[in-house]
């Protein structure tokens, strides 16, 4: 694969991870989160400051960045307990803007100049797009396995219950607040890890990398792919990261008007296909299952 392909793949992989992280909060726990990029940024800046300013080992910095982001997520989780869905959405948008302003003004984050980040070495070799792509891929696989396990556990059952009806969930023993906070911690921590990886791959981060439009981009990926599933956010993120690049050869329109395309698609999907392109009720999924059954002659249940 060429360097160009790896560069696109590494970015796409980070967005896959971000979409999966948002899906835990919004898809499984049903909490309106519109500021996922803020936590992506907290993880990125934390890890970058640790390696640059304090010369902490890259791997340790990734983990500390993840933990610190999770801690910030816990604070948001506590705030969310007091808020109804629409107010939580507005609050998280606000948090996104506040964080970008902080990144853009604090001296520790390099203010408006941004931060230069030294690319780490792995076995004496400086890590490039290829290494970062595989690193992110491994993290994605681990996260997916953990989500699969979650969905088969009582933890997953608790989130599904809360997502459907919090009052009903309480009536059969679920401490809704506790699970809500846990979902925020897990979802933001994964976004923080994605941030740490992103910062060290790019070698330079600035506040605009974590702007509100990035949150919308992540949300679009989850919604267009299929909220509440595993394949949905993955395929949605791949589609929306790769498609604009692929179309670049045809026309600059899609990459120039990215936000417009994301926003437009988001509105269309929510209106006409709320389950997403790859959700369980999607004609694409049903159609391919039908074809699959015809070919294999099996009557297997739809997953």
């Amino acid at each position: 694969m060429s360097a160009y392909v790896f560069s696109i793949s590494a970015t796409a992989a980070v967005f896959v991870l971000l979409a999966l992280s948002l899906n835990i909060i919004t898809g499984y726990a049903g909490q309106a989160m519109m500021g996922q990029a803020a936590f992506f940024g907290i993880g990125a800046y934390t890890a970058a400051i640790l390696t640059e300013t304090y010369h902490v080992n890259f791997w340790l910095a990734l983990i500390l960045g993840m933990l610190f982001t999770g801690l910030c997520g816990a604070v948001l989780g506590l705030i969310s307990l007091r808020l109804q869905a629409d107010f939580l959405a507005i609050t998280t948008i606000g948090i996104n803007f506040v964080m970008v302003a902080l990144f853009n003004n604090m001296s520790i984050t390099g203010a408006s100049l941004g931060l230069n980040v030294t690319k780490p070495s792995f076995f004496g070799r400086q890590m490039g797009n290829q290494e970062f792509f595989f690193l992110t891929l491994i993290v994605i696989v681990i996260v997916c396995l953990l989500i699969v396990k979650m969905r088969r556990s009582w933890f997953g059952m608790a989130l599904a219950s809360i997502n459907n009806d919090a009052a009903a969930a309480r009536s059969f023993g679920i401490d809704v607040s506790r699970y809500q906070i846990l979902a925020f911690i897990i979802g933001t921590a994964i976004a923080g890890l994605a941030g740490g990886i992103y910062a060290h791959r790019m070698g330079y981060i600035a506040s605009s990398d974590f702007a509100f439009t990035v949150s919308i981009q992540i949300l679009s990926m989850v919604v267009i792919g299929g909220i509440g599933t595993i394949r949905g956010p993955i395929l949605g993120a791949l589609l929306l990261s790769v498609l604009p690049e692929a179309l670049r050869f045809v026309s600059d329109f899609v990459s120039d008007y990215r936000s417009l395309v994301y926003g437009g698609l988001l509105v269309l999907m929510v209106r006409f296909m709320p389950g997403g392109l790859f959700g369980s009720s999607s004609p694409i999924v049903r159609g391919s299952l039908w074809v699959f059954r015809k070919i294999t002659g099996k009557g297997g249940a739809a997953a």
């Binding site: 088969r152 556990s153 009582w154 933890f155 219950s161 023993g173 506790r178």
Partner: peptide, 20 residues
């Protein structure tokens, strides 16, 4: 099944216990 888990919803520990 969700209601049958009335004594299983113990926070993070419930992650390690299969529901079905």
């Amino acid at each position: 099944v969700a209601a049958a888990g009335v004594h299983e919803y113990t926070g993070m520990r419930s992650y390690f216990r299969k529901s079905h």
